[in-house]
């Protein structure tokens, strides 16, 4: 436990040094904030654009607060996932390439301790950033559009947190195999995209797949309770994350034996 604390502390220091502690929350906050604001000003933006013929009448229905927040989530799903992968792709690869990994494992350090210190730090950082930005998006939605109840926001928040944890785990998993950060980012996004593709190819198992988390979260936002079984996707996602963590530790143990 003491070793874990030391490594965990080192992770935070490193994140501060490369300013990840600042830019990651800032970027995620920007992505989420721009969605409600741009939706609110959409009529003004369209009015001021020159591409419309004079006299054109556009009537946009005002979206409800729940729809706006759901839009924010899906915005985060595309851009945010890419940002999370970019932020996580370097963590193991870099240490492996500059030799500090070799020096670290010449001491009695457990691979599981090492992996979990990284994983815990990344999960805490990303979930913290997501909490702040989702809260801010909720605040903006409430003042610009209609109120969304706290209970449905809370449920969708918890559901969506799982997706973020999954993205982090997949990226770390791939980085225990590959030695180039570009390759790590590519393969991780490929894996995450193929999960989504699988749900369209085989619709029967779609409700069990982690890519269903976004649909579930948006549905919880708009109706308050989902028509889809929540437990199924929760169980498969958590099992998938646990499996990835387990294989990651095993694989990493093999690769750092010299």
């Amino acid at each position: 436990m003491k070793r874990f604390n030391v490594l965990f502390h080192k992770e935070w220091v490193e994140a501060w040094r490369e300013k990840k502690l600042v830019w990651l929350p800032a970027v995620i906050l920007l992505v989420t904030l721009l969605q409600p604001i741009s939706l609110y000003f959409m009529p003004t933006i369209l009015e001021n654009s020159n591409s419309l013929p004079p006299g054109a009448v556009i009537e946009l229905p005002i979206p409800s607060g729940a729809e706006v927040l759901a839009g924010t989530l899906s915005q985060l799903h595309t851009i945010g996932t890419a940002i999370i992968v970019l932020a996580c792709m370097n963590v193991i690869v870099q240490e492996r390439n500059n030799g500090s990994l070799m020096q670290l494992f010449s001491r009695p350090v457990n691979t599981a301790t090492y992996i979990f210190s990284k994983w815990t730090m990344l999960v805490m950082l990303h979930l913290g950033a997501f909490t702040i930005s989702y809260g801010a998006a909720w605040y903006y939605t409430n003042i610009l559009f209609s109120d969304v109840s706290l209970s449905s926001v809370w449920k969708s928040f918890v559901i969506y947190c799982l997706w973020i944890v999954l993205v982090i785990t997949v990226t770390l998993f791939v980085s225990t195999f590959l030695r180039r950060s570009g390759g790590v980012a590519g393969i991780s996004i490929l894996i995450l995209a193929s999960i989504a593709l699988l749900s369209t190819v085989i619709p029967d198992i779609a409700i069990y797949l982690p890519s269903n988390l976004l649909n579930l979260a948006t549905e919880l936002l708009s109706t308050g309770k989902g028509t889809m079984p929540i437990a199924a996707v929760l169980v498969t996602t958590i099992a998938f994350i646990a499996l990835l963590l387990f294989t990651m530790v095993k694989q990493f143990e093999k690769s750092v034996k010299f």
Partner: peptide
Amino acid sequence: GPILYFVIGQRKDAY
């Protein structure tokens, strides 16, 4: 631009 710098521009040598 800043994101690109933070992700690929920094050289992080431990020693």
